[in-house]
């Protein structure tokens, strides 16, 4: 399965440009979609899942075009939206059964088998008769992914799936996603939690302001930040000073001061050592130094907040 996003643009009524001539190719396997809030990730995914139309450009699923072959494309899709809730009056198994039915699985018995198998895989078989909206947060997420996976979709799109989950549930969720999905399937994971991508995706794309800013593997992105991440031991006074100069990624208090990590082309005036970057470091480096967008984005965020108030 190959997805080709070609010159995809989305302009909302009012003129806000959510996607701007986006071109991207996604192969089978896990694909991470990274970007700050408002980058256009959700818009992209809603267009990909045919929940909304694009303004121009198209997406090809193999040879299926979203502007033409919606039925075929929908038959390929599994989707877990970010803010996912349940019908109040459906039980856990019923929710999956509904999805299974709509995914084209015919026959009550066959559907029952598929549903039970899926429930076992996501660890919800024991609570199959519980009302879906009475499940815990983690269980709900698992049920969400289960309904996305039922019917063996070729393209699975999950939007911010681990937000609000504790680490154990997050790891469990990631494992389910990798284990249960079809090996040839495309799994698109949209998140701003970099850890989710680093631990699962072979490729990722970074979106900002509706544009594709980076496409490659997590290692390629990390490589860009190599030699740009520093570890410095600072006193409290120096900390205030350094905070003004460099983006601080982590701060660990210790005797007589703090051990901090910063992203910078070079650090002068402080005793520091370069460390191996991870994807989170790379993301910050990318956003702050290559795109030089952080301040602007903060300003945008402030403006939006003010407007909302």
């Amino acid at each position: 399965m190959q997805i080709k996003i070609q010159h995809l643009s989305k302009i909302y009524p009012g003129g806000k440009k959510a996607l701007d001539k986006l071109n991207l190719e996604i192969e089978s396997g896990m694909f991470g979609l990274l970007g700050p809030n408002g980058a256009g990730k959700t818009t992209l995914m809603r267009i990909m899942t045919l929940l909304q139309d694009s303004s121009s450009g198209t997406i090809l699923y193999d040879n299926y075009d979203i502007s033409r072959d919606r039925k075929e494309i929908r038959a390929l899709l599994g989707y877990l939206p970010q803010d996912f809730r349940f019908f109040e009056k459906l039980k856990t198994w019923e929710f999956l059964d509904y999805g299974a039915g709509l995914a084209g699985i015919r026959g009550k018995r066959q559907r029952g088998e598929v549903v039970d198998e899926m429930l076992r895989k996501v660890g919800l078989f024991e609570v199959r008769d519980r009302w879906a909206n009475r499940l815990s947060g983690g269980m709900k997420r698992r049920l969400g992914i289960a309904q996305a996976l039922i019917g063996q979709p070729k393209v699975i799109i999950v939007d911010e799936p681990t937000t609000g989950l504790d680490p154990e549930e997050r790891i469990r969720f990631r494992n389910i996603l990798s284990e249960v999905s079809d090996k040839d399937a495309v799994i698109i994971l949209s998140t701003h939690i970099v850890g989710d991508i680093s631990s699962t995706c072979k490729k990722l794309a970074l979106l900002n302001r509706g544009e594709l800013k980076f496409e490659g593997s997590p290692d390629e992105m990390i490589a860009l930040a190599r030699g740009k991440v520093w570890e410095i031991f600072v006193t409290d006074l120096e900390y205030e000073e350094i905070k003004e100069k460099y983006p601080i990624i982590s701060t660990i208090p210790s005797d007589g001061g703090m051990e901090i990590q910063v992203v910078a082309e070079s650090v002068e005036g402080y005793s520091c050592k370069a460390i191996d970057p991870n994807l989170e470091h790379a993301y910050v480096y990318y956003m702050d130094f290559l795109l030089k967008d952080k301040l602007n984005m903060q300003a945008d965020a402030i403006r939006e907040t003010a407007l909302a108030l």
Binding site: T49, L51, P81, D83, R85, F87, G99, L102, A103, A148
Partner: peptide, 18 residues
């Protein structure tokens, strides 16, 4: 109203039905 409000509808809407 239920269809409008909840993202639940979206997981139904992505299914291959007309």
């Amino acid at each position: 109203k239920r269809d409008k409000k909840l993202d639940t509808a979206e997981v139904i809407y992505v299914r291959p039905m007309s």
